[in-house]
Amino acid sequence: MTTTSLASLASEPLFGLPLPEIWFGLLFFILAMFLFLDGFDFGAGALFAIRDDEHEREQLLAAVGPFWDGNEVWLVVFGGAMFAAFPAVYAEVFTRYYLLMFAILGALIVRGLAPEMYEQREDERWQRWWGRAFVFGSVVAPFLLGLFVGNWMLGTSSIVTLPGVVVGLVVVALTIVDGVAFVRLKTRGSLRTELRPHGQWAVVAYLALVVITLGYVYAAYPTLREKLLSPLVLGLVVTSVVLGGIYVVATRQDRFYTAFVAGGGLVFALVAVVARLMYPTIEPGTNLTVGDAIVSTLPLNIMTIGTSILLPLIFLYFAVLYSAFSGPIEAGEGY
């Protein structure tokens, strides 16, 4: 019994499903979850730069405090899923952008450490420098992640490329859009009222940068034109514009939750565009397709079974976490 079921696990995909495509989609879903959840952490960190008031700064830290660790784990899962499902891509891309990967890690280390350090001491000089480190990590990490995604998507051979830099800026703008929505949802008073225009400007800048990026890709990569003009990509761009409009209106009307959801929707639309521009390759730099790069059937089936059990559980954990800390933070909460 066990041997026969194991044998079938080794020879054919689970339920005959198109597993390479499912894992391709899952990989980008995980990436989107990371960019959405850690994105508003990054955004809140970037806002630290323009808020000097000690009380506001405490609120910014307290707003992301309970969530940051869980949000960052999506990046660990992204790496793990890519390693497990597409090991050749993992090795190829991470080696090619070697220094960039370590720059990302460096920025994430600074980002992770800075709030912990900031809270350690009260004196002004200490807090000024760790505040700056927090802003630095929160802006540089998403920029470099965007640079990575842009380079990977276009298969560039060097690290610093024009389209990569523009995608980096796109991601930074997006984190600020999400960060503003999140902070306004989680705080009261001056932060809530005074951040309103920042969100509106950020979403306009974001949409403009997306259009510039796609225009550049259209001009510089003739092979991608057909995909760019496909109904899916055009539909996603239109969706992004509509979501941006909803975000602006909701921000103006202080419908915090609606703005937050719209900001999240923008992340998923962006990642979906990236995925569409890549498919059917997953490593455009070496023209490796999803079908070529996928691991063999047995580990893929095991991973699929495991993930279909674990992913709902993960959503349950996040539901517990976010409902435990629902609503605006109260005074005295935080570190």
């Binding site: 660790d69 869980g70 784990v73 497990a84 090991p87 063999s296 517990v320």
Partner: peptide
């Protein structure tokens, strides 16, 4: 070795690290 090595790392993230990191938020702040 991705087939043997990547799988456990992915499971580590999804099964273990997710559990730990989310409930740590509740445990430390809640």
């Amino acid at each position: 070795a991705g087939e043997l090595f990547g799988g456990p790392l992915a499971f580590e993230g999804m099964m273990a690290f997710m559990l730990e990191a989310t409930f740590l938020g509740v445990f430390v702040f809640g």
